[in-house]
Design a protein around this nucleic acid. Sequence first.
DNA 1: ACGCTGGGCTAAATCGATATAGCATTTGTT
DNA 2: AACAAATGCTATATCGATTTAGCCCAGCGT
Lengths: 344, 344
Amino acid sequence: MLSMKGISIKDIAKQAGVSPTTVSFVLNGKAKEKRISEQVSKKIQKIASRLKYKPNQLARGLRTGKTKTIGLIVEDIANNFFASLAKVMEDEADKHGYKVLYGSTEDNTEKAKGLLEVLKYRQVDAYIVTPTKNLDKEIEQLKATSKPVVLMDRYFPHVSSHYVVVDNYQGAYNVTSHLANQGYKKIAIVTITSDQIQMKDRLEGFTAALKDHHLPFNKSLVKKIPFELEREAFNTEIKKFLTSIKGLDAVFFATNYLGIYGIESIRSLGWEIGPQIGVVSFDDHDLFRLHSPSITCVAQPITEIGKNIVEVLMQELNHPSASPQQIVLEPSLIIRASSDPGKK
Amino acid sequence: MLSMKGISIKDIAKQAGVSPTTVSFVLNGKAKEKRISEQVSKKIQKIASRLKYKPNQLARGLRTGKTKTIGLIVEDIANNFFASLAKVMEDEADKHGYKVLYGSTEDNTEKAKGLLEVLKYRQVDAYIVTPTKNLDKEIEQLKATSKPVVLMDRYFPHVSSHYVVVDNYQGAYNVTSHLANQGYKKIAIVTITSDQIQMKDRLEGFTAALKDHHLPFNKSLVKKIPFELEREAFNTEIKKFLTSIKGLDAVFFATNYLGIYGIESIRSLGWEIGPQIGVVSFDDHDLFRLHSPSITCVAQPITEIGKNIVEVLMQELNHPSASPQQIVLEPSLIIRASSDPGKK
DNA sequence: ACGCTGGGCTAAATCGATATAGCATTTGTT
DNA sequence: AACAAATGCTATATCGATTTAGCCCAGCGT
């Protein structure tokens, strides 16, 4: 039986009757550069592929400082948006020979710090981070280590970093305008208790649209709910909020999970989505597509986001650029039945 | 500025005025065993924590052969079931100091082999695998490497291995019986083209229930669709199938994504779920809970599954057992409106 | 005073790869 | 023929930890 330990560079060297150094040169494509003869070179290649040699990534990583591993920190891998994105990124990273180590923050800064810590001493080559509140210090420190960091979904306006996000302001503006154009008059928003840029932008896009359409706006139309609540508590909060507004005829849920809780809440109130209350959400979801009535939303271009993130990362790994790459993609408005007051 | 490279054991040794060996002994809790004095021991501990020393996992891994990393292979991380499970397992693994490297197979054997290969030369300590068809050889080889392997969601009956699954037969039997008890008479099943045990069991549970309730069964009531089709193609196939059966009054979708496609298909046929056609699915999903009408399903105990998997893995990592741990959990029937023919 | 025992610590090898410096040998030049 | 340059390859150090073998010294018995 073959030994437990894999084939090492020494085994090949022995079989080829050369030194490990030579084998290393050849297998790293430095045969020409290091003036190894065609003969020897081919012989080594042949033996390596016959033995199915795979370099031990630990040893290589220890010596070179490169582990071909990317650390991925998302808010919640169980959330459809992040899971789908994770899959795209994993595929893209794989094309470049990178693997992904991941973790979820639950939007908790301490958890995020812990994850960064672990990824650091696991020597990942680069980071993809969905930052939490107050993670700016850590992100800046990370930049100083010269390992590429790309922020996703959100970023820190006062920190110069790479990021890939969507235009949250425009997305929120468009979907709110759509509600206004449909004839809804009193529109509320349910969002997360968070000062982070993506939620701020969504809220601002919302208020700007109300203003431009001369619709009423005041603080009582905004509900902020803490991320960490349980499902029941979300529903309670949402119901309390919605019933507190006289004349309310439409509501914008600022994330996919809020949209899902929102639908549940509205249904338990017995309100009819569409005619009685317009409903729109940020992010798309199978549930929104197939709900009766189907739910209008602002969809993020997940594949594009994922590809962009990995592309930026690879560029920075290969030749770091002086200035940060900051990519803002356009979300798309998907109009469905939940925002149609005329619907039977 | 601090040097880029982290704190190493040498730095601590230097500061403490001792050898790296001593530091290693102390930090690995072998102070007593190796007869290091209390004094020196405490001093080293203090310096280590002051410098926030974290051992370089690559170096440690190279020497010990343990990377504290688990390879996780799922069918599709973008699928809610696998994503939720991945999160549970990540959390559990983290409690034991393990990180997770993951990949999706898309139920494609070649992709699965590739993932195993990569995880192997990345020296993961253990594997959690959702196997694809024909992956039995590789699983057996893996066992020979003495790295623990736990199969999930499905297993190979002829391979003796650890696994954690649900009782697919019973789940399918129960939900089918429920349909029968509700008065549905002609029940079909939509499943995946797959000979794997989990789908086989679901199909068998289904047919057994039909038989026990004296309901008709023949091959025309079974539709198998290839996993790799696109959404459109799934819908086309499902619609073609459902309309081909005279007198059909209920259908069982054997996975969550089939259930989702199924709902979409049935709705585009204009059929009324519940009264006109009973619908049930394997796996729960937000969509099933909130659909109108809500969808009856067989839910898998995700948290329990995830915890069990990691528990088995940790036991095997610590003291490998001679006989395989094979855990079969009970899924639960969640009765909702889609299986109520009397519903308004 | 000599050997023995045990306490307290360390030198050096090792894991598997890569990078640096350099050693033979051949070829070319005048 | 003498020397330089090019060719083809290798010895050795290194990354940062762990592990093995063993050194030195103090105290003890006789």
